[in-house]
Design a protein around this nucleic acid. Structure first.
Lengths: 208, 208
DNA sequence: GGCGGCATCAGCCGATCGGTTGATGGCAGG
DNA sequence: CCTGCCATCAACCGATCGGCTGATGCCGCC
């Protein structure tokens, strides 16, 4: 049986080395090359035609999502397995839309990683459990912009730099309630802090 | 000498009472009425023609800025003295543009408040020291969107919910440097936290 | 040839945030 | 009637943030 050929894309040399040595130590894999950004990745994918591209998102100079888009646009035969540190809707959804075959977090056990690469090579989709769960709840409830009136009000104040305690005073409710609203807002928007919530709200035109 | 007539506008009954009793205890002032939101404020200002309107910004149902705009638009003879808890550019600049005669923070000493009202009654502008300083530095340097490339990069990551430590890893710099960049960003945008920075950046089209 | 902007880093500290768990009441829809 | 969503509140805790002070090196400008 032939080895599964790989292209490793990450801006961190350390990570690239780590992946390369992991796959060198395991049978059935061959790392063809490494790239440090999206542009390099596309060029090498075209030239070397690896089976699977291990792609980091968020790189300086040519983000991962753009690279995935370009690879699928050019009809290159390789599968893209996203391997990143973070799990925000802002990252995952675009990557999957762009054509990623799988999506794993970097803290995944090495065996999971190997399995994911094998799966990707056969065009089977593999998602890390967290991502999968988030996608499911997202599909199940198309809650785009389903913020309640109260939640929008809280978010508006947040976008003006108002602290939770001040928001509480402003709306005549307790600080605990403000925090509850915020937790719900984060869940609905798929983010993890107020800054991202504000950004997402602007993106989805939930704020003026 | 005739008393200076006042209209107190604040959504907090407590604050309204506090102001009313403060001015009742001091000679030379007469509180004509109170309003709980912007709409009421405009109506009462038109009806009672007070010398000075003490106006809170940020009220449910008819914000303070809108009320000020409306008052000046109608050519009402009263001066508006903004009296608020917060001091963000997002609040002060629009209020002053709308036609506020003065701008005080609620933690100002009572004597300052009295003086400010007397000044406002004579159309003299009174700003709290903090506000004044901020306005000066703002006029001196027309720093609209003068974020450096690095600062924009940091802000972009912030808008995606990235923590300082993660931003540091992403950009290959230390967490301390990220914090420094953020402090500069806050200063340049006239805000006090990352959420407001993101909102302001969107407003000024500094972020896609 | 100093002056200012930019980028980098350190350490300390209090304030704030976000997660977690759990609970209550109201109101709508099935 | 029960289930789900909304709004409200509490207490605790670790993580993060932001302010403050201070320092270094680089570069462009006048």
């Amino acid at each position: 049986m032939t080895d599964i050929t790989l292209l490793v894309v990450d801006d961190h040399p350390v990570v690239r080395n780590g992946l390369r040595s992991m796959f060198a130590a395991a049978p059935g894999f061959a790392v063809l090359a490494e790239a440090a950004d999206g542009r390099e990745a596309v060029a090498l994918a075209e030239e070397l035609r690896p089976d699977v591209v291990l792609m980091d998102l968020r790189m300086p100079g040519g983000g991962g999502v753009e690279a995935i888009t370009e690879i699928t646009r050019r009809g290159l035969p390789c599968k893209v397995l996203v391997l990143t540190t973070y799990d925000t809707d802002t990252d995952t959804i675009p990557a999957i839309e762009a054509g990623a075959t799988g999506y794993l977090l970097k803290d995944a056990p090495r065996e999971d990683l190997f399995n994911a690469v094998r799966a990707a090579a056969e065009s089977r989709t593999v998602l890390s459990p967290d991502i999968a769960a988030r996608l499911v709840t997202r599909v199940r409830e198309p809650r785009s912009g389903t913020l309640s009136a109260r939640e929008r009000e809280v978010l508006r104040l947040v976008s003006r730099g108002t602290a939770n305690r001040e928001i509480a005073a402003e709306l005549f409710i307790s600080e605990a309630t403000v925090k509850t609203h915020l937790t719900h807002i984060y869940a609905k928007l798929g983010v993890k802090d107020r800054a991202a919530a504000v950004a997402t709200a602007y993106d989805r035109h939930l704020l003026p």
